[in-house]
């Protein structure tokens, strides 16, 4: 796919230049995962961010990685939940309050939440995939009356790897059905055991009126989307967030290309119907 004029216009701004942002708080969520609240040192560097978009976070001298926005902080800061899996994320996870990092963005497509007002909403996440979806949950919480039944289906490998668990009770208190599962557990766990798609079978929602938002390991999303379709959810109402090796974030380098799609620019949020076939191609 050629880079069109819209894309060129989008990249004509200062999107290539990381701006200095300051860490306002760093909260260890679980063993290897930290949530950073960051604010631009110069307020003019701040841009409106929509749920689902990501920022490129830069540790000087180490490198740059795409990290989804996982919420907004108490003031004007952005929250990013980072899992320590490589050199850059390791450095990010070890930042402290007052430290400076580079940031550019936001980039990418957003969750089409407003398009589904009045619908039931299914939010399904695996592992750190809950981070890009937490803004959707918060969006729905703030506008609870605009949506019908809301279901959060979340899973991880084991109980101590579940994110944001302190927030679950608040979500439930607002009438959101929160179902949590883990792949493995000992007898101290009293929740579900099994993979995330099995939770669909326990969730209460109107399939013909539901919109679904998925994020997690790709294989989990494939099975989850299929489970939802099998249950009767309209495929066009299923949306998912894909992440590959994003580098430039503006659709120029091709590192994150999935067939004709640039995930950084056309995504990361896609309708299931647009990427279903592509996700089944091993070479991609």
């Amino acid at each position: 796919m050629a880079v069109g004029t819209e894309r060129a216009a989008a990249s004509a701004d200062d999107v290539w230049v990381p701006r200095p942002w300051v860490v306002r708080s760093a909260t260890r969520e679980i063993g290897d995962t930290v949530t950073l609240e960051i604010e631009p040192r110069d307020a003019s560097a701040a841009r409106p961010v929509a749920p689902g978009q990501f920022m490129m976070l830069y540790i000087f001298g180490v490198g740059e990685v795409p990290i989804s926005v996982s919420g907004t902080g108490p003031t004007s800061g952005l929250l990013h939940t980072v899992r320590d899996v490589g050199a850059v994320t390791h450095a990010l996870c070890n930042l402290g309050v007052g430290d400076v990092l580079g940031a550019r963005g936001p980039f990418g497509s957003a969750w089409p939440i407003d398009e589904h007002k009045g619908c039931d909403v299914v939010i399904a996440a695996g592992g750190i995939g809950l981070a890009p979806l937490r803004p959707v949950v918060r969006h729905v919480l703030e506008r609870r009356g605009e949506y019908d039944d809301v279901v959060v289906l979340y899973g991880s490998r084991q109980p101590d790897q579940l994110l944001y668990t302190p927030e679950f009770e608040r979500w439930r208190a607002a009438g959101i059905q929160v179902e949590v599962t883990v792949d493995h557990a000992d007898q101290t766990w009293d929740g579900h055991i099994g993979v995330v798609p099995t939770l669909v079978r326990h969730a209460r929602f109107q399939v013909d009126e539901a919109a679904a938002f998925l994020c997690g390991p790709e294989v989990m999303m494939r099975f989850m989307a299929q489970e939802l379709v099998d249950r009767g959810v309209v495929p066009e109402r299923i949306h998912l967030s894909l992440e590959r090796n994003m580098k430039c974030a503006v659709g120029m380098c091709g590192r994150c290309q999935l067939g004709p799609e640039f995930l950084c620019l056309d995504g990361p949020v896609f309708p299931w119907t647009r990427v279903e076939r592509l996700m089944a191609v091993p070479e991609l």
């Binding site: 899996v85 750190i128 490998r157 790897q161 792949d183 993979v195 798609p197 390991p217 294989v219 099975f223």
Partner: peptide
């Protein structure tokens, strides 16, 4: 059986 196969894949490895 399908659920178990997915569980065996341990999808929450370093790539998630």
């Amino acid at each position: 059986f399908v659920d178990t196969r997915l569980q065996l894949m341990d999808v929450y490895g370093s790539r998630d």
